Amino acid sequence: MTTFARLMLGGVLIAAGWLKIGAPALSVQAVKAYELLPGGVATAVGYGLPILEIVLGALLVLGLLTRVSAVVAGLLMLAFVAGIASAWARGLRIDCGCFGGDGTLAAGQDPGYLTEMLRDGGLVLCAAWAARFPPGRLALDSVLGLADRPGHHDLHDHDEGNDS
């Protein structure tokens, strides 16, 4: 199940980043369409977001630094849900820009905010699962011995050297 969760989340992140990275000006416009960030910050986010999505997605697909990548990806998905909810609550009619585009809707097109929030909420659940459970046998974390072994605890859960 963890392999499925990390592959689903990683695949979506890679697709989203890949579709935006070739047109950074459109990505910047999509971020600005939310009217949440100052101009310079929105520009930096618009340029940086596709790179972050691709890197996080690749780490998750490979199963490398899985838990950290899943936590960061989950926080990113929560930020997306919050941004979409904010746009909806403020009556903005924009395209999320999640998979490219500049944030504008065609005339009469429904923004689909609820569907987007449910999709991203499902991805938050995938991230939580991937962060909570070992990454699976096919993950590089497991191959390299970086994953928790079944039956062993994290150092935070049990410190064998300090039983005083």
Rank of each mutant, 00 (worst) to 15 (best):
L36C: 03
R90E: 09
G112P: 08
G83Q: 03
I94S: 02
D110A: 05
C96I: 09
A15M: 14
A89H: 11
V72N: 05
M77V: 10
T43W: 06
P111G: 00
G11W: 03
A70V: 06
V28H: 06
L60R: 06
L64V: 03
L56P: 03
V72Y: 06
E35N: 15
C98H: 06
G100Y: 10
T104F: 04
V55F: 13
R67Y: 08
A73S: 14
L64I: 10
L92S: 04
S69T: 03
R93H: 13
A16M: 03
E53F: 10
L36M: 15
A89P: 11
L62I: 13
Y113K: 05
L49M: 15
G39V: 12
A16D: 07
L62E: 03
I94C: 04
G112E: 05
G103D: 08
I84E: 00
Q29F: 01
A106V: 11
L105Q: 04
A87W: 03
G63R: 05
I21N: 01
T104I: 04
G91Q: 07
P24Y: 13
L92R: 05
R93Q: 15
A25V: 12
P111M: 00
A107E: 14
A42E: 08
S86R: 06
K32E: 15
P50K: 09
Q109F: 03
A58N: 04
A79N: 12
A16K: 00
D110V: 03
G11Q: 08
V61L: 14
I54A: 08
G11C: 08
A25D: 13
G91E: 10
G63A: 09
I14Y: 00
C98V: 04
W18C: 04
L92P: 00
V45K: 10
A70F: 08
P111T: 01
L114E: 10
P50E: 07
A25T: 13
G83E: 02
A82W: 12
